[in-house]
Design a protein around this nucleic acid. Structure first.
Lengths: 165, 165
DNA sequence: TATTGTTATACTCTATAACTATA
DNA sequence: TATAGTTATAGAGTATAACAATA
């Protein structure tokens, strides 16, 4: 880590050496955020043909893999606040990708299911996302991917208390 | 990766087994985003006493480590769009943490500098952030941290083209 | 013609309070 | 009293177009 104020002369306005970002680059949070944004930037055009945003794809995927899941469970799984899920579900429902059914045993809740069309869209999108993630977006081999994911998971699943939200 | 539609019976409304998120957890983008959010959630209260948001801390740090840097260079380094930096700098300037000076050789540009107070705030905040990152937020040892950061950097710095933005 | 810094603006994402109906 | 789903709303964060001054 370099000194905070080396008091070097003023830098040129353009075409100069890259600025010193060494401290930020020593932070996991900084690097994780930059990496996530870089990958999302590559995944976005992949989801665009399916008219899905990243969050919508995540919600659709969780519902597809967990038929009958409730809104609250989707919120807990994806760290989404309930009020923000309402609009997401409404859009997926209006597009005919998701449907709600009465929940047996709890008349407050509703079971979420993907429709036949929703299942098809989800399957195609999942395949496209998986392809981008493994091939283009990351310049890592399988072993490096596995290592990276295991380390990342230990951070956000942690050993003790969960996230603040 | 499990089947998309196993057509299992409806899930209980609460207190049930955790939903299947295995596909999302196989994605680097998903895990990187979750990890970044988890760490930021821990860093936020650390920056709060200094009345700094994460982006403000990043900007202040880059200016402190690169006296005389221009707005455009800060934008390029942190992937911030110029219009969005204006308000950030205005606030840091009004708080007396950053100051602009005429840029020698280019009358369009302005050199950015931290004030004495800005340097002090930045140093304290940097120390606090570094402490949280290494100790509490991540449950990793030094070697694991180094591995993780190296892998993340390869993703967003990539081998070829940069990010879309 | 291109670039720096800027304004205005819009759109997305995230967060909080409060309501209803059920439990 | 607590929970599921919802509404309304506020606040960040992020995006584009367009302008004046300068290169």
């Amino acid at each position: 880590m370099r000194g905070v104020n080396a008091r070097c002369p003023p830098r040129a306005a353009s075409g100069a050496a890259p600025p010193d970002t060494s401290f930020l680059e020593s932070l996991i949070g900084y690097n994780a955020r930059r990496a996530a944004l870089a990958i999302i930037a590559r995944v976005l055009p992949t989801l665009q043909p399916h008219d899905l945003r990243v969050v919508e794809f995540s919600v659709l995927t969780v519902i597809a893999h967990n038929p009958g899941i409730t809104s609250r469970q989707v919120c807990a799984a994806l760290d989404i606040l309930p009020p923000n899920l309402v609009g997401l579900l409404r859009r997926l429902e209006q597009r005919g990708l998701v449907e709600k059914r009465a929940h047996p045993g709890d008349r407050r809740a509703q079971g979420l299911y993907v429709t036949a069309q929703g299942e098809q869209v989800q399957r195609q999108a999942q395949q496209a996302v998986a392809a981008v993630e493994t091939d283009e977006a990351t310049h890592l081999n399988a072993a490096e991917r596995a290592t990276l994911i295991a380390l990342l998971r230990r951070i956000y699943q942690g050993n003790g208390a969960g996230t603040t939200r």
